[in-house]
């Protein structure tokens, strides 16, 4: 790299940007759902015992 040839961040094409956004949203939703599932199943497994501490 030289002063005369700075490398700028490579811009995405509109199609690439749209596709990446759609993938990111899907991954976020999937991870959120996974967390919700593990939380819900933890409560199910604890059952009534979860209230014993109170």
């Amino acid at each position: 790299m030289s002063d005369q040839h700075d490398i700028l961040p490579t811009p995405l094409t509109p199609a690439q940007a749209r596709a990446r956004r759609s993938r990111n949203v899907a991954i976020a939703l999937a991870l959120g759902a996974l967390v919700a599932l593990f939380f819900a199943m933890t409560i199910v497994r604890l059952g009534g015992h979860v209230m014993d501490r109170f």
Binding site: Q4, H5, I7, T10, P11, L12, Q16, R20, S22, R23
Partner: peptide, 23 residues
């Protein structure tokens, strides 16, 4: 040479165009 001053950039890098629907 996007700005005519020697700064380099690229159109359409090697990034996937697959949408969530494609997966």
């Amino acid at each position: 040479d996007i700005d005519g001053k020697g700064a380099e950039t690229r159109l359409g890098p090697d990034v996937s165009v697959a949408t969530a629907g494609d997966f």
